[in-house]
Computed example of a mutant assay.
Amino acid sequence: MDVADVNGAVAEGFEPVREAFAANFELLGERGAALAVYRDGHQVVDLWAGSRDVEGSAGTAPWERGTAQIVRSATKGVAAAALLLLHQRGELDLDAPVGEYWPEYKTAGKEHTRVRDLLAHRAGVPVLDRPLTPEQAADPDLGAAAVAAQAPVWEPGTDHGYHAQTYSWLTSALLQRVTGRPIGEWIADGIAGPAGAELWLGLPQAEAGRVGRIGRIEAPEKSGALKVRPKRAVTEAYADPDSLTRRAFAAITPLPDENSPAYRAAALPASNGIATADGLARFYASLIGEVDGGTRLFTPETVRLARTEHSAGPDRVLVVNTRFGLGYMLHGSASPLLGPGSFGHPGRGGALGFADPESGIAFGYVTNGLRTSVTADPRAQALVRAVRKSLPDAR
């Protein structure tokens, strides 16, 4: 794709971002995508191109500025913000046992699990001994009962491992016990509305027509792009049905149809939030400052909590070194972000949202083409590098 085929605009100095965005289509098999970047609360990048649906061909509807997509685990950053905002308001104590708010959780060795353990993937319940079907997973009461009954696979608070699916019911059940409200409704009123961000957890029927279809893609063989081979231990972990890795991702079995209206309407904060690129970037911009002179969601102290390292080192689920703050992945080898102080969350297969307080950058990338990467997608990383190159200190 030529740069001229990319829709949207970039501020002066951010031309390398447009070039990298176009190159993703030419070299990395991108089908349809959008990117938005804010700096100091003002949008400096707003780009989109390709087809709305991944299987798009001639005649398929093009991606438009308001096209939205499922962002998978990038949703976790929004769910974390909800719990941190409750803490900021004095309604949730991060050092309190989860069972203080959710009495049913005080079973099977989980009595001393703290709220901060849950946020930092230290709760010890990344798997379900009895996986839920997609229909069961969409029922918040069934999901809450399943994780409440689950025995931990390590002593809570002593180690970390990515809670790929169970994070949905851990966060949604805790929030509902504290507020009395469903998490999707709370996010709409407490985060998306004040920030002016186009993002949803539990897609309203009125917005269904703007969401494109997602699907798997591969980089073209002719691209010459570097193909990173996963370590043998990682490959083996994903191949072994008894590994924590496979079991964590299989907490919902069989895999849901992510393009189905029923799945999109569910509220699974680990995996099925839907957003535009601008919505994801604007959300992160609102965490670290005022957006267009308006709302700021996090105080400086809450930003500090979000990005203070709580978990680091070998991840018992992802089988690589990961770093987590309270609900957010931190800059590192598993998820390279803009700089050491960045915090955010990728979505398996492509999407990425993060904030970097030092530079004032907030970043949102969404795509309909899902690749096999869990964290460091090469398309998102190319865009992050281009943003870094565009900052004044780098020029």
Rank of each mutant, 00 (worst) to 15 (best):
L244M: 09
T166V: 08
D377K: 02
A173E: 01
T253M: 10
T367V: 15
R307Y: 10
D139P: 03
A262W: 07
G157W: 07
A68L: 02
Y263I: 13
S172D: 03
H331Y: 03
D315E: 05
A267W: 15
G353V: 00
W186S: 01
P392D: 07
A80Y: 04
G50Q: 06
G273W: 15
G332S: 10
R216T: 09
R65Y: 06
I288S: 04
G347E: 05
S223R: 08
S57E: 05
G8P: 08
I191R: 13
I70S: 12
S335C: 11
V178S: 00
A61Q: 09
P300L: 13
L119P: 00
A120S: 10
Y38R: 14
L119H: 00
A164N: 15
A334L: 07
H112T: 08
R130F: 13
L244H: 08
H87T: 09
V3F: 09
H160D: 09
L370Q: 13
T158Q: 06
D40P: 12
L83F: 02
V127A: 08
R31L: 12
Y263N: 12
D93T: 06
F249L: 13
P256R: 12
G161W: 04
G350Q: 05
L280C: 15
G369H: 09
T67E: 05
L83S: 01
R379N: 00
L84M: 12
L338D: 03
D93L: 02
E15H: 11
S286R: 08
W169F: 11
L297W: 02
D46L: 13
L28I: 13
G344E: 02
H160M: 09
L170W: 04
A250E: 15
L297G: 05
T179P: 05
A164V: 10
Q176M: 00
Y284M: 05
E221F: 07
G77Q: 07
A108S: 09
Y284G: 10
L201E: 09
Q43A: 14
G180N: 00
A74C: 11
R210Q: 04
A266S: 15
I191P: 02
G209V: 07
L305G: 03
H163E: 09
G360K: 09
L94F: 07
S271N: 15
D189S: 12
A237H: 01
A195V: 11
G347N: 06
I70T: 10
I187L: 04
L47G: 02
I70L: 14
T235R: 13
E358N: 11
G90Y: 04
T171A: 15
V45K: 11
A80C: 04
Q205Y: 07
F21N: 10
P62G: 02
A4N: 07
R181P: 00
F21V: 09
P126F: 07
A192M: 08
A386S: 00
E309N: 12
A312G: 10
A237N: 02
D117A: 04
G347S: 06
F25L: 10
D292C: 04
R316P: 13
R72M: 06
S168W: 02
N24L: 11
Q88Y: 05
V387Q: 00
A197T: 11
A173D: 00
